[in-house]
């Protein structure tokens, strides 16, 4: 930025911007910090009593909650793997092949799940499964999560592919690499950060989703279970679960940043 005009006014404006930025960071982090602090409080109320792991013990002893956590992990793992594979293939098709049957329709179809509101998607999947006569179960949750995750994965991978130099793949072909060999040795390693980024996004979205899961669920996932608890009222046990979920998110973000840096 220009420092040529180092007038008092500019400096004051900069100070205001700085103050504003600190205020926004406070806004971002104060609620989270309050949750974490009170999850370690002995008291049931929001007045500090003593440091305690009481609510964490209670959380791990809650069988329903542990079952929901396990269901969440299963749904997230399966839907992430499948949607990453499908979404990556879709991204390759759209970025690397000039035309194929129905390409434009496919392109539009791939965007829709991103912009459609959660409640509409939830409603239509519920109606769909019921009109097929399908019993709602963990399988219907997984199928629904894949349906919204394919699009997010493909967008992330496409962004990476668009920035790649196709000359690299052409060079491999010139050197008599087979199609599969060129893909495995050149393309795949180059798009790997995009694929991992897409997988991470899919994992996070699957672990976050409340609305769609609420409609198509058989068993509770962790978010729908916690949502039910919250609606019944605030308890320190929810603070403990929340802290656990927060830690998982932060670990995922920092992990992905470390991964990006290495590439």
């Amino acid at each position: 930025m220009t420092t040529r005009d180092g007038s008092a006014l500019t400096r004051r404006l900069d100070r205001i911007l700085k103050g504003h930025a600190w205020f926004v960071y406070l806004f971002f982090y104060l609620p989270i910090l309050v949750l974490i602090v009170f999850s370690f409080n002995e008291s049931r109320f929001f007045t500090w009593e003593a440091l305690s792991l009481r609510w964490y013990r209670q959380m791990f002893a809650n069988d329903n909650l542990m079952a929901a956590l396990w269901a969440s992990l299963q749904v997230a793992a399966v839907s992430t793997v499948i949607s990453t594979a499908l979404g990556t293939a879709a991204a390759l098709a759209l970025e690397r092949y000039k035309r194929f049957l129905g390409k434009r329709t496919f392109d539009a179809l791939l965007y829709l799940p991103v912009i459609i509101p959660d409640v509409t998607m939830a409603a239509m999947l519920l109606v769909f499964f019921t009109s097929l006569g399908r019993q709602l179960s963990i399988t219907t949750i997984v199928l629904s999560h894949i349906a919204f995750n394919i699009s997010f994965v493909s967008i992330v991978v496409r962004a990476r592919l668009a920035n790649l130099d196709p000359a690299l793949e052409e060079a491999a072909a010139d050197l008599y690499a087979g199609r599969w060999q060129a893909f495995r040795k050149i393309t795949l390693p180059l798009i790997m950060p995009g694929v991992l980024g897409g997988a991470l996004l899919a994992l996070t979205l699957s672990l976050d989703d409340v609305v769609i899961t609420q409609f198509v669920k058989g068993p509770d996932t962790l978010p729908t279970f916690v949502f039910g608890l919250i609606k019944r009222g605030v308890t320190p046990e929810i603070n403990a679960v929340s802290t656990l979920m927060l830690t998982a998110s932060v670990v995922l973000v920092l992990g992905s940043l470390a991964l990006q840096r290495r590439n």
């Binding site: 960071y25 982090y29 989270i32 409340v210 929340s242 927060l246 973000v253």
Partner: peptide, 19 residues
């Protein structure tokens, strides 16, 4: 420090305001 709330569970962040 903007990315962390961006990736953090939405339900948990909403619940924090209830508190």
């Amino acid at each position: 420090f903007v990315m962390i709330p961006f990736w953090t569970n939405f339900l948990v962040r909403t619940y924090a305001w209830r508190v």
